[in-house]
């Protein structure tokens, strides 16, 4: 099976976000691989191990961390990587999807995988928008796949632990929520090897346009501790107070 996996860099969720008008202040913002894309990569690698074929990873060069992300994916077992553009300004999900659709065009992939969502996708989910752009069937919130003959059986999670299975004729696009196995780790030495392997290609593209027709007019941070009464002091003070709260709630 020939598989493409679309990777996105998203603002590191552990970082404190600061705003600059109607956008994040991105000057010192760190980026990490979208966690659901990590699962998409894992599922892609597992499928490749089962069926043969290849995994090619794609990412837009919208953050400095993207090159490292792609090298890491190659170190984990992807056969090739394509970095689309360099030093690009952020672009909305529709704009990203359009770039991916163009890049995937000639690829003849059986399966295109990406994370089910990313934390900044205000105008839709890239994986599903790519499916629409390629005119391919899609299933989102996928939590496992089994390769078939010209098709793949996918498990989609609904809610409350309820899942449903589907047979999806290939080629298709899947939005992965969780891989069958926890995403693999890779040693730093392997990543260094990947950097030297030449498996990563830089593809020159122009700055893509926003294409969603959705304009962000304002951004706010929720107030610090909005809602919660914050307990002051050290862990001893916190434990004392929580014990009191448990007693007040009648469970102690």
């Amino acid at each position: 099976m020939n598989i493409a996996v679309l990777l996105r860099a998203v603002p590191d969720p552990v970082e404190e976000l600061e705003l600059d008008g109607a956008d994040l202040d991105r000057d010192f913002l760190g980026y990490v691989l979208n966690e659901f894309d990590d699962h998409a990569l894992e599922e892609g690698l597992l499928l490749k191990e089962e069926t043969g074929g290849s995994v090619t990873v794609y990412a837009l060069g919208m953050a400095d961390e993207v090159e490292q992300m792609l090298h890491t994916a190659i170190a984990k077992g992807a056969d090739a990587g394509k970095k689309l553009g360099d030093d690009l300004d952020p672009v909305d999900a529709h704009g990203q999807a359009a770039v991916f659709v163009e890049a995937l065009g000639e690829g003849n992939y059986d399966l295109v995988l990406s994370g089910v969502q990313a934390s900044d996708e205000i105008d839709g989910q890239v994986a599903m928008l790519v499916a629409a752009g390629l005119g391919l069937p899609h299933v989102s919130v996928v939590v496992g796949t089994t390769p078939g003959d010209g098709s793949v059986r996918v498990t989609k999670e609904y809610w409350a632990g309820i899942t449903a299975d589907y047979d999806v004729a290939l080629p298709a696009v899947l939005g992965i929520q969780t891989a069958r196995e926890a995403p693999r780790y890779v040693a730093v030495a392997r990543i260094r090897q990947a950097q030297e392997s030449g498996a990563l290609e830089d593809v020159d593209i122009d700055q893509p346009d926003n294409m969603s027709g959705v304009t962000i007019t304002d951004m706010r941070l929720p107030d610090e501790g909005e809602g919660a009464e914050m307990i002051e002091g050290d862990e001893e003070a916190a434990a004392d107070k929580v014990l009191e709260l448990l007693q007040a709630a009648g469970v102690r």
Partner: peptide, 29 residues
Amino acid sequence: DPQAPIFGVAHYGWAGDLFDFIPELTDRL
């Protein structure tokens, strides 16, 4: 993280390390 959105829905919050907090509360219980 004092900015964590969980504090937006919580009634009470403590911004600190859970590994400091857990043994303190367990001890008291």
